[in-house]
Design a protein around this nucleic acid. Sequence first.
DNA 1: CAGTGAGCGAGCTTCCGCTTGACTT
Length: 772
Amino acid sequence: MTENLVIVESPAKAKTIEKFLGKDFTVVSSFGHIRDLEKKGLGVEVDKGFTPVYEVPEEKKKVVNELRKLASQAKTVWIASDEDREGEAIAWHLISVLGLDPSSTRRIVFHEITKEAITNAVESPRQVDMNLVNAQQARRILDRLVGFEISPVLWKKVQPSLSAGRVQSVAVRLLVDREREIISFVSDSAFRVTGSFSGQNSEGTEVLLKAECPKKFSSEAEAKNFLVKCDTSSFTVENVVVKPGTRSPAPPFTTSTLQQEAYRKLGFSVAQTMSVAQKLYEAGKITYMRTDSTNLSSLALNTAREAVTGEYGAEYSRTRQFKTHSKGAQEAHEAIRPTYFDRKDTTGTANERKLYELIWRRAIASQMADARMEKTTITIGMSASPYNFTATGEVILFDGFLKVYTESYDSNAGEDDKSILPRVDKGMALTAGIINAVQRFTSPPPRYTEASLVKKLEELGIGRPSTYAPTISTIQSRGYVAREDRPGEKRTIAQLTLSRGKITRTEKVEIAGKEKSKLFPRDIGIIVNDFLIANFPDILDYNFTAGVEKEFDEIASGELEWDSMISGFYRPFHKTVDESLSNKARMTGARQLGNDPATGLPVMVKMSRFGPVVQVGEASPENKPRFANLRRDQLLETITLDEAMALFALPRVVGTFEESEMTVGLGKFGPYVKHDGKFYSLKKGVDDPYTITVERAAELIREKREGDKQKVISEFGDIRVLNGRYGPYIVHDKTNYRIPKGSDPQKLTREDCLAIIEKGSKTKSTRGGKKK
DNA sequence: CAGTGAGCGAGCTTCCGCTTGACTT
């Protein structure tokens, strides 16, 4: 018999709290929500005042039974779910599902896990706030209505199994809108002039400095003209301005900023960041990793101050509390921070150690003093031109928090050279060394990374810390967008150099548009996006969530009835759903490109059942059109007639080998040679399917055969011992079996193998069903 | 593993937010 039962959301939290509360309290976890709208069907009785139909999901039944048992044995039940909309709803569902008495069940909240906060909470219990619960129900119902009414429209009008939702559809829109900005971007170029200068300062020291002309010259002729002036000009130091400056540390991590920095500094995907953080949290090394708050508990502030003072000295310490600015923040938790500030590093996998250190540095730095610096700007005047050159430098006078942490930024522009400048005096004469004018192209807006998309969604108040990673994964698994690299294209840039009175012109090659791990919209994402914008512009509006959130807040404060809010939304919404269904047109993204120059047949691109294709000729009973798949880096929207026709160059016959034809093609898994019914992959970065020779193709076949020979260790009819990527293994009946340690694969007999198979098939549990 | 591309039309797909496992090579 338990005196007091406390229910929290997370099991790791339960463990910690139990320690603070002593033996009169048993603390257990609900593992998040325990009840949801029914899985099948709409889950909302629209005609009965939008009554939600709740059920306990199959995977939650065990937890619920356990909780019910414990609750019936306890004298007092305390519900300590998070202090936000979802937490309040969890409390209400718990009372209802566990059959608790609402008046005697105590609802408590704390947003930091410290003994003080918890004891305070226990001393001031309250009851469940039904207004807040209703705000959550409205949120849940709205999301279900939007998702489950629009998705079936897509199944009919675009393709089966597609999905739409308040969050995911806007995420895709951000990517499509950005892609179109990039498509329509016209690059411009200008010449940037930099030079080196030397002279003697008043101390008699020879100094050298590099400076840049702030004026950008839009044509090569203008740049050249300026260099001619430079040649005849004298240069003097016109001004030296020294300005003090300070820099302050960034706040400790929230989910979103952790994902951004882990991507930039460690190259983690958002999902990877969350799973590594989960491990650290479960081990008690960091506080909760799904949070939108930059707040730190007073305990954290105190221990951080001790750690900073101990490690770096009192002058490095500055206690700060940060305000949370992000839209829609509910601040149920603290910021992400190390549990113990005096632990600079940790044990575990390499990734766990790296992420821990990042979190530690960021949190510690947030409790450190500003950095102080001195910025110097030197202006160099010219006698022959009204333009000038400037050099900027920065000297750090006191490093402060920079000792521990510097924030990274997404930027494609090169960092400014912030070096230390030599001592120069106003009026000092300078001699120009080499002066360069280099052509610089403007760049289109950058594509989103997973992390920068999360940042944007957070700014718009769309999605929550617990859903950023799953949303990014959903839009990828639906095929709307893909994370990819692009090699970029070469382009020539001009450079003019003035040296010893002579101007020379050279050309250099640079790579433009190279992309690494960026999110690219795919054709199906673009088609769905356009369809949704045409039919549901309100929901696709970037401010839709902000608007409904405002209404949820009004429900929470009791100013608005949840059902009248839903009804106000649903009536016009459902009408558009019906209208878009009755409109017969299917969306295929079809586009006419012109006519095939060879045959005169019409050429079009469109989305087929299996992806984007080029089609030459019309389909009719007596005529089958020719088809070719688009490449991954091509879009229906931008492909040209020439590019489309070039796709028919493959597959092609390269020649014969051993009296059979060799065909080169582009398959799902890249370019290949097909010979005698077998496939041989071309070597990445070495072979090109369009130009590969007969000799090379034959060589690939021989190489593969040689490799396969070494692959087979021994063969006993239907049982084979093979060399694989992870070492030797046995294959029988399409199943792989590991060879036990200690046995020599070379010496295995058929009987040995059968024994291993027999044993293996007993131990092998569920061999994961069908995978998509 | 390297194809397919239309149509019969069964029965399936789908949302967002809260929380962890239990799985695989």
